[in-house]
Computed example of a mutant assay.
Amino acid sequence: MSVALRPVGTATALVLAYYLLPLEKRFEGGTAVGLVLGLAAVAALFTWQIRSIMRSSRPRLRAVEALATTVPLFLLIFAAAYYLVEQADQGSFTEPLTRTDALYFALTVFSTVGFGDIAPHTEEARIATMAQMAGDILLVGVAAHVVVGAVQSALARDPSTAPRGPRGSGRAGRG
Score class of each variant (00 low, 15 high):
Phe110Cys: 03
Ala143Pro: 03
Ser56Asp: 04
Ala40Val: 08
Ala17Lys: 15
Ala162Leu: 15
Leu97Gly: 10
Leu73Thr: 02
Ser111Trp: 01
Leu103Asp: 00
Phe78Ala: 05
Gln87Tyr: 00
Thr47Pro: 07
Ala41Met: 05
Leu107Gly: 08
Ala162Asn: 12
Ala17Cys: 11
Val146Pro: 01
Tyr83Leu: 05
Ala41Pro: 03
Ser52Lys: 11
Phe93Tyr: 15
Glu124Lys: 13
Asp158Met: 11
Ala4Lys: 15
Gly30Glu: 01
Arg62Trp: 06
Val140Asn: 05
Gly114Val: 06
Tyr19Pro: 06
Thr69His: 11
Leu75Ser: 04
Ser52Arg: 11
Phe93Asp: 10
Ala68Arg: 04
Ser2Ile: 08
Pro72His: 02
Ala156Glu: 14
Ala162Arg: 15
Ile127Val: 14
Glu86Trp: 00
Pro159Ala: 06
Phe74Glu: 01
Phe74Thr: 01
His145Ser: 12
Asp158Trp: 10
Leu45Gly: 11
Glu123Trp: 11
Ala156Thr: 12
Gly170Thr: 14
Pro163Tyr: 11
Ala40Gly: 06
Ile137Asn: 14
Val3Cys: 12
Phe74Val: 01
Ala32Leu: 12
Glu28Tyr: 04
Gly175Asn: 10
Ala79Trp: 00
Leu103Phe: 00
Ala150Ile: 06
Val148Phe: 14
Leu97Asp: 08
Gln132Met: 02
Phe78Trp: 06
Ala150Lys: 04
Leu76Lys: 01
Phe93Ile: 07
Leu14Gly: 04
Phe110Tyr: 05
Thr47Ser: 13
Leu14Val: 03
Ser2Leu: 10
Ala80Met: 12
Leu75Lys: 04
Ser2Thr: 10
Thr98Ser: 10
Ile50Ser: 06
Ile137Trp: 13
Thr31His: 00
Arg26Gln: 05
Leu138Val: 12
Pro96Gly: 02
Ala81Trp: 03
Gln90Ile: 08
Leu75Gly: 05
Ala40Cys: 06
Leu20Asn: 14
